[in-house]
Amino acid sequence: MQLMIVEDDDAVATALADAVRASGHDALRVSRGSDALLQHHSAQMILLDLGLPDLDGLEVLRKLRLVTNAPIIILSARNDERSVVRGLRLGADDYLIKPIGLAVLLARIDAVARRAFVQTQGVSDLQVGPLHIDIEKRAAFLQGHELALTAKEFDLLALLANHAGSVVTREQILDSLWGDAFVAVSRSLDVHLTGLRAKLNTPGMIVNVRGVGYRLETPGP
């Protein structure tokens, strides 16, 4: 498993990386919250310190949860109840208070992985009612008729279809299609979304959840 260690203390980061590698995992270390937000794609689990030099760790956690479902374990010296509660409510899978024994940490990593590990990749076809998407051929069909989609429109439709019935946030879309949830490309998303809706020509199929994101509903027969 690929773990990202978000820790600005070199000694602590080295000890963590050595421990997880010794247990058979791969480790990527970053020291800044902004780096974690840009490089999270490669992480299957994230170990997150809260005392980072550029961003507060809880803010990093909040932003990560907009774009990734990868399990996140907080490792922090903050042991006050408010920080622990906020961390868990913002989406952390576990909250461990420093200093923590490495054997205990590895056991908690295994426990979190067992209950929260997210399945990724490997999907070759998506079926949402009469909408069929062939991921490998990058082709989409509605009621048997192929849709003439641009590359970005196809990626957008596939993303929404993979979460059909659930809301996909604007941040998740921007992160998946443009590689950064926090760059100013929202207007580009609006343009591609308008084009996709026109080609689907099915009112109500893509629902705008105001202030959050979009949801793909199963179209009628």
Rank of each mutant, 00 (worst) to 15 (best):
residue 120 T to Q: 11
residue 80 D to E: 11
residue 87 G to F: 00
residue 215 R to F: 00
residue 191 V to F: 04
residue 23 S to K: 11
residue 199 K to R: 09
residue 213 G to F: 05
residue 155 D to V: 05
residue 67 V to N: 02
residue 41 H to G: 15
residue 139 A to Y: 03
residue 142 L to N: 04
residue 108 R to D: 10
residue 185 V to K: 13
residue 159 L to C: 09
residue 125 D to T: 15
residue 37 L to Y: 00
residue 216 L to P: 01
residue 214 Y to A: 05
residue 119 Q to V: 14
residue 83 S to W: 03
residue 212 V to F: 05
residue 35 D to L: 06
residue 178 W to N: 05
residue 45 M to F: 04
residue 122 G to N: 14
residue 162 N to P: 13
residue 55 L to I: 11
residue 56 D to F: 04
residue 166 S to Y: 04
residue 217 E to H: 05
residue 187 R to N: 08
residue 115 R to L: 13
residue 125 D to V: 14
residue 62 R to W: 01
residue 149 L to R: 07
residue 101 G to F: 10
residue 64 L to Y: 00
residue 132 H to C: 12
residue 33 G to M: 10
residue 87 G to K: 00
residue 96 L to G: 01
residue 160 L to Q: 10
residue 179 G to T: 11
residue 8 D to V: 07
residue 160 L to D: 10
residue 7 E to G: 06
residue 31 S to K: 09
residue 15 A to T: 14
residue 118 V to E: 11
residue 27 A to E: 07
residue 115 R to I: 13
residue 18 D to L: 15
residue 68 T to R: 04
residue 79 N to Q: 12
residue 191 V to K: 08
residue 151 A to H: 09
residue 47 L to E: 02
residue 154 F to M: 06
residue 96 L to C: 07
residue 111 A to R: 10
residue 42 S to H: 12
residue 75 L to A: 01
residue 15 A to D: 14
residue 174 L to C: 05
residue 9 D to A: 10
residue 149 L to V: 14
residue 61 L to P: 04
residue 67 V to A: 02
residue 77 A to G: 10
residue 75 L to S: 02
residue 41 H to S: 13
residue 11 A to H: 04
residue 20 V to C: 02
